[in-house]
Design a protein around this nucleic acid. Structure first.
Lengths: 246, 246
DNA sequence: CGCGCTGTTGAAACTTGTCAAAGTTTGTGG
DNA sequence: CCACAAACTTTGACAAGTTTCAACAGCGCG
């Protein structure tokens, strides 16, 4: 996909950190930038960090000063209530941004936790704002990303507010499938990185209900489940489930 | 609060449209701008529009080119599924922005409907982007507004995902109360602009459940309800309801 | 002044949650 | 590399909460 390795054999770490060489650039923040603009963005994203499975990328209540692009891996974000209740607010995969929730108060308002060993790029927010004052395309794209996050949240509200358990799970699986497809993975076969309890929290259901819905889908031939391994056998069937909420 | 009327007696319409004279400027987009910056923002917000009760400010699927600041009145936003299910995604009051959902796709993704006769200021989005490339404070504040919208949505997800009917309604009433207070109205007494069905859609409940919860709150002495007129008698009681989800 | 929309209340049905037990996988330390 | 413990998943029976269906009351708009 790129010949950079042969052109710059010396400094591997620079190559690895640069957006210009990242195969996620069409999914991530750099979308639509010219080559020159991309290099200016590269300057800004100096730090890359590994986050091991189970570790927090950031915690609710801590100071916000950067947003994070997922280079590889898988995350969840959640909010905890004082009485211990947890709501998973999203699952994020490569090319997606984390931390947008912190801009408003300059404190993170949720926890971001790696569900597998992951790598992220830190983007210092004040520098991103500076650069997007100079690069219109970057500014506009960033606004689009934030807006899409709002729209995504509306989708979750719809899911939680109007759908029954099996519809929620069907919508969830179809959404994951679509996002894996966009990243070049199989649309029909994937491993879940999260537990039934985490899926349940996201979907507003108890883990037992999630488990039962998986079993039901399997009985009806929509999917094949083996613990975290999912094979989707009948996309149309799952979609149909969401329309007749009889 | 302002002496502008006596200084500029001629052109009333200009006075009325200007952010610099708007008493919502501390709640709305102009927050934190200098006088000079405010005037530049005024130039941008040329059109003001009345929206009568029941009318759409915009519809899902139509072209996006402006965001809207509510100068007076009350709105709801909702998303409709093909099969007719409706999810109210929010209720907006004076000083709040509408239309942020449209930036991502350049199409509105929800409907915005006035719940009472209202007035809004149109802010052409591309001009807002231009100006915020020049005025750092405006740029930053706009980002904060979008971020807070995301955080608000997370709050709704928490509500829908983990709370039971009465907790949801208590949270809803306390949220309204707080927002009325911020606008200088009574925190304890207000008129609901929406029907039980709209509240139910927002909270993921059927209208009958909402009605029953109102009756229950009244029986227990937390509030006094008379149709759309609400008086909050025991804020602590409502808050307590949300913590023991026994 | 009445018709329609909105709201209230009751009883039955249904969905999901709770509690419990057993099976399976994963990870760790010997 | 195996064994054991911990974490996760599945399934069943029962309970609880919410929806559904239905009837009626009240307010408000025309």
């Amino acid at each position: 996909m790129t010949t950079s390795h042969s052109l710059h054999p010396i400094n591997l770490s620079v190559i690895k950190t640069a957006c210009s060489n990242c195969n996620l650039r069409e999914l991530c923040l750099p979308l639509g930038l010219t080559h020159e603009e991309l290099e200016r963005l590269d300057d800004l994203i100096s730090t890359r960090r590994r986050v091991k499975r189970g570790e927090h990328l950031y915690r609710s209540g801590t100071a916000f000063d950067a947003i994070y692009a997922i280079r590889s891996g898988f995350f969840k974000t959640d909010v905890l209530l004082e009485d211990g209740r947890e709501q998973v607010t999203g699952f994020q995969m490569a090319g997606e941004l984390l931390g947008l929730d912190g801009i408003g108060t300059e404190l993170h308002t949720c926890n971001a936790i790696a569900l597998e060993d992951s790598e992220i790029c830190s983007i210092p927010f004040s520098r991103l704002e500076s650069l997007s004052r100079e690069i219109h395309t970057l500014q506009h794209h960033f606004h689009k990303v934030m807006s899409r996050e709002i729209v995504r949240d509306h989708g979750v509200m719809m899911l939680l507010g109007t759908m029954r358990a099996e519809e929620r799970l069907a919508a969830f699986l179809l959404n994951l499938s679509q996002r894996f497809t966009a990243r070049g993975f199989s649309h029909a076969e994937f491993y879940l990185r999260m537990t039934r309890e985490e899926i349940g929290s996201y979907l507003g259901l108890k883990l037992e209900t999630v488990s039962r819905a998986f079993s039901k889908f399997q009985e009806e031939g929509f999917i094949a489940v083996q613990q975290k391994h999912i094979r989707i056998l009948d996309v149309a069937g799952l979609k149909a489930l969401m329309n007749h909420h009889a």
